[in-house]
Amino acid sequence: MPQITYREAIRHALAEELTRDPNVVVMGEEVAQFNGAYKVTEGLLAKFGPDRIVDTPISEAGFIGLGVGASMLGIRPVMELMFWSFYSVAFDQILNNAANVRYMSGGQINCPIVIRGPANGGTNVGATHSHTPENVLANHPGVKVVVPSTAYDAKGLLKSAIRDNDPVFFLENTILYGDKGEVPEAEYVIPLGKADVKRTGTDLTIVTYGRCVIHSLKAAETLEKEHDISVEVVDLRTIRPLDIDTVLASVRKTHRVLIVEEQKPFASVGTQLAYMIQREAFDDLDGPIHRLATVDAPAIYSPPVETEQLPNPGRVVKAVLAALA
């Protein structure tokens, strides 16, 4: 199976869906002539032309709102936010208009929009560019939220997102863009809302998603080699809808849980997971649910310190040892 990068996997998903459905339009800052701020959309302008691959001004509220309006008339816009951090200037369009228009119209209007872009810290760009808003987004009924960790998942999930009739917010990761993974040449889709057990184990379940899956897998190797601890890693892949059944099945096997997330701790995705796990698998737990999150402060710039503010393999190892102590 060919190895391609996470970036290429997303590009291939876009190209395939642009080819499949003439209503798909890719729109965002620098997506066309510049070939993408992170080169995700490289080559798409040359292949699909300026009607399908559209450069926008730096005007997130304007162009995201335009995409929402166009989607109501049947266009399937795939909007790129150069950083998901910029969602704050388009919050009203994303979370009042896209999220609510179906409901407020009594189900008369669909909003099949995808908003995608990177949402992560770890690149020393400071607090304004390092937001991870998946918890904020997923707090809004009516939306779907996807955070892929591998090239294979990113491609299959993005194709599902573009075909979805509800608004889907797709959160990528600049640090993962260059990571290679096996991706089949034949077409495939991955349904939204389906978790994936990325590593099986028996002593403890790590529930995680996004880049923290990669950290957790590295930590699991260390724990196995150095501590003889067998960790299972469940990658949620989608935050909403949420595949809690896969999480619970793992908890019922290992009886110990550590949640790992690149989130500020207060009211995070992990907070919701912890609530659901204790509510639905209380008798299967042999100890309290543990969590490793971002150190609770705005994202620090200082490069070596930011690494320690975020979850990383070393911090995951320590958190697992603490959970099993």
């Binding site: 509220a61 304007g62 162009f63 995201i64 709102g65 335009l66 995409g67 929402v68 309006g69 166009a70 989607s71 109501m72 008339l73 049947g74 266009i75 009203d92 369009q93 009042n96 208009n97």
Partner: peptide
């Protein structure tokens, strides 16, 4: 907030 949406209708 509806004005970008209206512009999107025109875009469509």
């Amino acid at each position: 907030g509806q004005i970008p949406l209206g512009t999107g209708l025109a875009y469509a």
